[in-house]
């Protein structure tokens, strides 16, 4: 018998990892390109919130000056980072849905039997999905600018790493969920129990201090929600500021969700004895 330790890049080679990473990520993008409806739906959803919901709410909700803003802002401006977060959240869940679909249809087997560590294969898939989410965010920011909701020019550049981290965190959540959801039919539950609570119990639509005025409990829940920190990370980055607490919490949540996903996809966790 051959005795070998073949877990690391030393045996299979760095170029193998690079080639596989590129192929997996490109395939995710290609799949997205083939689904034009998904791209349109991904843009229509936040645009409806921005152009309809926010317009209606503008009169009802007064916003005082809080960091990172240095002046009074319109409600539309306030919810732009939250809607970027919403795009990434939906994108993460969409990629989770496609993972469950892949597993039911069998195509996930091809990926999981590739001669590379499973964590690397799943991480490559996660990166591809995150890249798609970032593309959608930039398309959304572009359309928002056309409608007059603009941000500091350098903010569009500075927000990239924030979108990347937030996208990876939410994608990792989707990955973790997909390892526990066994059937496509169960996915509706994700909408009710993950997406909506995460989005509404966050600072995406209203600042936390505003939430505290109505309920301390709700405020505390919002403050514990990792999505809140993803949104705040994006919000500060758009104004070229670093929110260290948001960065730390988003990173921590990403690591936890990734660890959960890797545990969920561990073949030895199957119901065996």
């Amino acid at each position: 018998m051959v005795s070998s330790q073949d877990q690391g890049p030393s045996m299979t080679g760095f170029s193998h990892y690079r080639t596989a990473f590129w192929a997996i990520a490109t395939r995710e993008v290609l799949r997205f390109v083939h689904q034009r409806e998904r791209f349109i739906a991904a843009l229509v959803r936040p645009l409806v919130w921005l152009l309809v919901f926010a317009a209606g709410f503008r009169a009802a909700l007064g916003l005082s000056i809080t960091p990172p803003y240095q002046t009074y802002i319109t409600y539309e401006t306030y919810i732009v980072p939250g809607l970027c977060g919403m795009i990434l959240l939906f994108n993460g869940m969409q990629s989770s849905l496609s993972l469950v679909y892949d597993r039911e249809m069998g195509s996930m087997r091809l990926l999981l039997t590739a001669p590379l560590p499973r964590w690397f294969l799943l991480f490559s898939k996660l990166c591809g999905a995150t890249f798609i989410g970032i593309l959608q965010c930039y398309a959304f920011l572009g359309i928002a600018a056309v409608f007059g909701i603009t941000l500091p020019p350098l903010g569009y550049v500075a927000v990239f790493p924030a979108l990347l981290l937030a996208g990876l965190m939410l994608g990792a959540l989707g990955l973790a969920l997909s390892s526990f959801i066994k059937q496509l039919e169960n996915f509706a539950g994700v909408m009710n129990f993950v997406i909506f609570p995460m989005f509404f119990l966050s600072s995406a639509l209203y600042p936390l201090w505003k939430m505290a005025e109505s309920s301390e409990l709700l405020h505390d829940i919002c403050a514990a929600n990792p999505f809140t920190y993803a949104v705040e990370l994006i919000r500060f980055a758009l104004y070229q500021q670093m929110n260290l607490a948001a960065f730390a919490w988003t990173s921590l949540a990403m690591i936890c969700f990734l660890a959960l996903a890797m545990w969920g996809y561990d073949p030895s966790r199957s119901k065996s004895s």
Binding site: M1, V2, S4, D6, T12, P117
Partner: peptide, 11 residues
């Protein structure tokens, strides 16, 4: 092919 699947899964 000489590789133990649990010890050397990638190989």
């Amino acid at each position: 092919a000489g590789y133990d699947l649990s010890a050397s899964p990638q190989a």
